[in-house]
């Protein structure tokens, strides 16, 4: 099973094994990793599953959709590393991906 390494803002690490096909958001919420709210339940419509992923890992991900971009734009803290974790589906090719959690969800 591929692994996700979540790093909370305060530095606490969580190594989570994820089912192929689960989103990173689902991996966090079902394993009670704090820092992701996912109010809309994964519909790309609340931007409260915001995570930060480094550029080299981003190259392995599908690009942001227009919807994801427009939702991320609602967050003044967004950076180039910003992604909505409900839009990232886990697979073996992402094994070991490092996902940083922001200090706040909006």
């Amino acid at each position: 099973m591929p692994q996700v390494k979540f790093i909370e803002f305060n530095g606490t690490k969580h190594d989570i094994a994820v089912d192929d096909g689960q989103t990173i958001m689902e991996a966090a919420t079902s394993n009670l990793v704090p820092g992701i709210d996912a109010d809309c339940g994964g519909e790309c419509s609340c931007a409260t599953c915001h995570v930060l992923i480094s550029a080299d890992w981003q190259t392995k991900l599908s690009p942001r959709s227009d919807t994801e971009e427009s939702m991320l734009d609602l967050n003044p803290d967004r950076t180039d590393e910003s992604r909505l974790s409900c839009q990232i589906v886990m697979s073996d090719s992402l094994d070991g991906i490092v996902v940083n959690l922001p200090e706040f969800q909006y």
Partner: peptide, 17 residues
């Protein structure tokens, strides 16, 4: 469970700021 999964603030780009 999931108490924030409700419509009162709306969703999408106009979600209540």
């Amino acid at each position: 469970d999931k108490p924030r999964h409700h419509l009162s603030f709306g969703f999408g780009i106009h979600r209540c700021m």
